[in-house]
């Protein structure tokens, strides 16, 4: 009997598998297919203070072993999320929930963190300072250590729940940003958001995505994500939720060996709606095969000493 449980800042998860924000909605589409309580947690669709329609279509383009998206934080706004979406989610999901929030100013982040502090069922606040698809705010807070520090401080003052800062890979040194978040009191790091990318329609001679650029995700980014998690693990002491192309139990183990305590699964849910469940179910057998009794023992296992 293997132990797949992990702990994120005192929040115990039965297993480290968490569907990533923006790839799982508020869970219902998937709850129609299977009992989503098999998941460790769930990070719901990125929530802003005001309702947002998002970007014009096309919002999606394909890549070899991945996809680009420029949805642009479409969501019904925090009030509707707390009054309608969260209760509906909690009726089908009884595990700790990760609340993903995104803002356009420090005040907005603070407000959202305060609302999530009161929200029942929310165990962890994941603060997106890395969305590549909005033109103000979003990623700009996550590309400068000082801004990242300020957002973290502000969010920490508004909630007593664990705060995980979600970082962008579109920087020179992700470790410097992670360190700034840790210095400001962040409880953990969530990484990586998508890589800024573009595809061009060679017949129309224009970018495929209406927003021109989009965020690349899927198996093609896994090696980048693993490298970055490995680097940040050496730079900070707080736990890391690792993500970027995770599509199998093997990828989960790889991400944890790099330094992740838990793992988010994103693009894979869009290709195969059963992906997260399949990964959860494959973990115990893989652990036995690799001689792992307690999954939490392997966190950072690829580092020397």
């Amino acid at each position: 009997m293997v132990d797949t449980s992990v702990s994120l800042s005192g929040v115990r998860l039965d297993n480290p598998v968490i569907p990533a924000s923006g790839t799982f909605g508020y869970g219902y589409e998937f709850a129609e297919l299977y009992d989503i309580n098999c998941l460790g947690s769930l990070s719901f669709k990125g929530t802003t203070r005001d309702p947002r329609f998002g970007n014009p279509t096309p919002r999606i383009a394909e890549a070899d072993m991945g996809l680009l998206n420029a949805v642009g934080l479409q969501n019904p706004g925090v009030e509707k999320v707390i009054d309608e979406e969260l209760p509906k989610l909690r009726s089908v999901f009884h595990k700790p929930i990760v609340a993903n929030i995104s803002g356009f100013s420090i005040d907005e982040y603070t407000y959202l963190a305060g609302r999530m502090d009161e929200a029942q069922g929310v165990a962890i606040v994941e603060v997106n300072i890395s969305c590549p698809n909005v033109h103000a705010g979003g990623m700009s807070f996550g590309t400068d250590p000082r801004s990242a520090y300020e957002v973290t401080r502000a969010v920490k003052s508004a909630t007593s729940k664990p705060v995980y800062m979600k970082l962008t890979p579109n920087v020179t040194s992700i470790s410097a940003i992670a360190k700034a978040c840790e210095d400001a009191g962040a409880d953990g790091i969530s990484m990586i958001n998508t890589l800024l990318a573009m595809r061009i329609d060679i017949k129309r001679r224009r970018p495929i995505i209406a927003n021109k650029t989009g965020g690349l995700s899927g198996p093609c980014v896994l090696p980048v994500a693993v490298r970055m998690v490995y680097e940040v693990y050496e730079a900070v002491k707080i736990p890391i939720i690792g993500m970027g192309g995770v599509s199998s139990a093997e990828d989960v183990v790889e991400m944890m060996l790099a330094g992740a305590t838990a793992v988010e699964v994103g693009a894979a849910n869009l290709k195969d709606p059963y992906a997260s469940k399949r990964i959860v179910e494959a973990l115990p057998e893989l652990m036995e095969r690799l001689g792992i009794t307690r999954l939490s023992d392997i966190i950072g296992g690829a580092h020397n000493g």
């Binding site: 909605g25 998002g54 279509t57 998206n69 869009l270």
Partner: peptide, 16 residues
Amino acid sequence: ERMGCGFGACMGCSIE
């Protein structure tokens, strides 16, 4: 519309 998932999860094909 260009779609990501095709079953309502990703919001890739939303229109007003």
